[in-house]
Simulated assay, not measured.
Amino acid sequence: MKIAHLILAHSQPDLLKRLVERLTHPDADIYIHLDAKTPLQPFEAIKKLSNVYFIDYRVKVYWGSFNIVQATINGFQQIIRSGRQYGYVNLLSGQDYPLKSATEIHQYLSDNPGKAFMNALVAETHWMEALPRVELYHFNNIRFPGRFVLQGLVNKLMPKRKLPDGLILVGRSQWFTVTGDHIRYITEYWEQHPALQRFVKMTWAPDEFIFQTILYNSKYKADMVDEDLRYIDWSAGGASPKTLTMEDAEKLISSGKFYARKFDQMKDNTVMDRLDKAQNSAPSGGEV
């Protein structure tokens, strides 16, 4: 079974190269969307690696903005256009790192076909803090001075917004592992529903809900597993997860997860050395 890894990256070419090398497998292709604000030149060495493809249509990515969705869609479209049949498509950031070997990852997914490993909390009952993301207008994807003042005025005057077509809002984490069939359905649904595209452009952090929402409201709902296979530490509070260091190494190794985020090679490089050592000495097998 072939896997396509789609990586959204914007910095740290050495860390990205290291991630790509750890994901390398005879049945793996790696697609990279590099933020259009980032020059390509420092990443040239990665482009020369086997089975690595850079996404042709790059967009400028801003935190919490619609363009993260667009970057992901661009990646899905290029994967589909490749004509290759992928059993799974795995979405990662350039600051992620595997906790298991490529062989273990492929074996686990081969043993668990047809699943959508993604967080899928229903907003109205289990993720209520997400409701304002869609009920209010958000202008964070529009780059002009005073946009947030205008945003506040609009939200005072306009009624609450609702997702088109009666879609039930679900989600939580941006990162997931789903099948090639799921990706094709998501992409086709997105392309065929321009009203949804217009709506999502004025939401906040839609990358954390739009893909789950499309699948949840489809025949593929039964495939969804509320498990994203990732170790992410939110204990520090705030809008971003903790940057993982050597002090987290043993928790990462014993977590049973397949990937972790986020890492910063400038802050701590030794933690990844420890993870590599653990992977090289671990028996085969996987868990979640």
Score class of each variant (00 low, 15 high):
Gly146Ser: 11
Arg133Trp: 08
Asp228Trp: 01
Leu150Pro: 07
Gly64Gln: 10
Ser173Val: 01
Asp223Val: 01
Phe139Ser: 06
Gly238Ile: 09
Gly285Ser: 09
Pro132Gln: 03
Pro159Phe: 10
Ile7Phe: 11
Lys60Asn: 14
Val288Asn: 11
Met158Asn: 14
Arg261Pro: 01
Leu109Asn: 04
Ile253Pro: 03
Pro39Ala: 03
Ser284Cys: 09
Lys48Phe: 00
Ser93Ala: 13
Glu227Thr: 04
Phe148His: 11
Asn67His: 15
Ala239Asp: 10
Gln197Lys: 13
Leu244Arg: 02
Gly180Ser: 05
Arg261Gly: 01
Phe66Tyr: 15
Met266Trp: 14
Ala205Asp: 09
Ile7Tyr: 07
Tyr86Trp: 13
Leu275Met: 01
Ala123Pro: 04
Phe66Asn: 05
Trp190Phe: 12
Val149Cys: 12
Gly75Met: 01
Phe211Trp: 12
Tyr259Gly: 02
Tyr137Cys: 10
Met1Ser: 07
Tyr57Leu: 12
Gln78Ile: 00
Lys37Leu: 11
Gln279Tyr: 10
Lys160Pro: 02
Gln265Lys: 13
Arg147Leu: 09
Arg22Thr: 06
Lys60Trp: 00
Tyr216Cys: 07
Ser284Leu: 14
Val52Lys: 12
Phe144Gly: 08
Leu244Cys: 02
Ser65Ala: 14
Ala195Trp: 07
Tyr216Lys: 07
Pro26Trp: 00
Asp96Glu: 07
Phe43Val: 04
Phe263Lys: 11
Leu99Ser: 10
Val61Leu: 14
Arg184Cys: 08
Met202Gly: 09
Tyr97Gln: 02
Gln78Val: 00
Phe66His: 08
Gly180Met: 10
His126Glu: 15
Ala222Asn: 05
Asn119Val: 03
Phe43Gln: 14
Gly94Trp: 03
Glu208Thr: 03
Val89Met: 13
Asn119Glu: 12
Leu19Pro: 05
Asp165Arg: 14
Leu136Ala: 15
Asn112Ser: 07
Trp234His: 11
Leu169Lys: 05
Arg184Lys: 07
Ala120Asp: 03
Lys17Ser: 15
Tyr259Trp: 12
His138Lys: 10
Asp29Ser: 05
Asp264Cys: 01
Ser101His: 06
Gln192Asn: 09
Leu157Tyr: 04
Tyr220Cys: 06
Phe76Arg: 02
Gln279Ile: 13
Arg143Ser: 12
Glu124Gly: 13
Asp14Phe: 03
Tyr137His: 12
Ile30Ala: 05
Leu8Lys: 06
Gly286Tyr: 01
Ala4Thr: 06
Leu34Arg: 05
Phe211Gly: 09
Trp204Leu: 07
Pro164Asn: 14
Gly114Leu: 00
Met202Cys: 03
Thr125Phe: 00
Pro283Ile: 12
Thr72His: 05
Ser173Arg: 07
Lys2Ile: 00
Thr245Met: 09
Thr38Ser: 13
His193Lys: 15
Pro164Lys: 15
Phe117Asp: 04
His138Thr: 04
Met272Ser: 03
Val59Trp: 02
Lys257Ser: 00
Pro159Asn: 14
Ser284Glu: 15
Thr245Ser: 12
Thr243Val: 04
Val271Lys: 02
Ile46Gln: 06
Ser255Leu: 03
Gln265Glu: 14
Lys242Leu: 13
Arg147Lys: 13
Asn141Thr: 14
Asn269Glu: 06
Ser110Pro: 01
Met202Ile: 04
Leu229Val: 08
Ile73Met: 12
Asp226Arg: 12
Val200Trp: 08
Pro98Arg: 06
Ser235Arg: 09
Met118Ile: 06
Asp181Gly: 06
Arg184Trp: 08
Pro42Trp: 02
Lys242Val: 10
Ile80Lys: 07
Ser173Ala: 11
